[in-house]
Design a protein around this nucleic acid. Sequence first.
DNA 1: AACTTGGACAACCGCGCACAT
DNA 2: TATGTGCGCGGTTGTCCAAGT
Length: 336
Amino acid sequence: MGRSPCCCHDAGVKKGPWTEEEDRTLVGHIERHGGHVSSWRNLPKAAGLNRCGKSCRLRWTNYLRPDIKRGNFTDDEERLIIALHAKLGNKWSTIATHLDGRTDNEIKNYWNTHIRKKLLRMGVDPVTHQRLPPDDVLGLGLGGALLASPGAGARGLPEAILAAAASLGGLNSVLVQAQALQLLLQAVNGGGATAAAGLMGANLVASPATDNNNAMVNNAGSVVPTNFHDQINMTNLLAHASYPPADDYLNTMARFAEHHDVVQQQQQLNASAPAPAATVASFPQEEGVAAAAGRRPVQGFADLLLSEPIEMPGMCSLEDDRFWKDMLAEGNSLPL
DNA sequence: AACTTGGACAACCGCGCACAT
DNA sequence: TATGTGCGCGGTTGTCCAAGT
């Protein structure tokens, strides 16, 4: 029931960074007991440590445990973390069970310091795994860079767009790219959305007066889809239009979903054998999270994980200048 | 050289759950 | 059933260090 007073509140109990001597004492004690700790609360006294039992447990599980893998996260690990987070949310301990030798604390830290920022740069909300509203990305990003770009006159626009895109190296979502393309085409054609729509032979760009209830108008005057299926349609459309859609994120998530269907794996585990206590305890919560993630209006990449992977031929990364150069060339070569 | 800023990561804190009594 | 105990979890803070000014 209630929380008992923690020994950490005791006066004289040491806090802060662990010394090598303390590490040796803790490891030595645990090893003498066969790597098993019967009571963390009693451990400090038994081991001769002036530390809180909780602090000892944390130090052991997050740092001293022999099976911990140190060093940088690999690309595969990073993708797996993103895929798992899309499905599970901030269930760091559960996510950690899918990465050999990684602790929940390490994954949590890596998420907060690296992946979170990376996703934001890509125009993906790290919490919902949905694309950020276009205005948040284009308005403050490409659009803002464009507006701030000196000499962005009629002749200078393509260069300005290229420069703006280059300045946003992390841009990496189909939605953003499509909008950038629209912006580019509008600039190059001097025409507008409808001309671009005609060029692309589909409803990628519609009139602001569209009756598409799922669309929204961004600050560039283009209508962009706000629901998942429209985004997928846009993805396929771009693929078929021979533009080089570069949604690494979509592809990555879809691919990992094939190999890491967490809920399915755990249901199998649950059915086959009694799992460790921590895992058993986490099952109902996980299902709840997964279900919640798939529920509208928070419809995002959790759904995507369960869908078919999307074929994206000729994919290249937006981190690569080539994408923007190709796009610019395409735009210039299109009939007006 | 001194100071500031920001990133990375270890460690702490408090809550809730499971289990024992 | 009520209460106590221990542990695990997720969020937050503290500390170190490198880069920039």
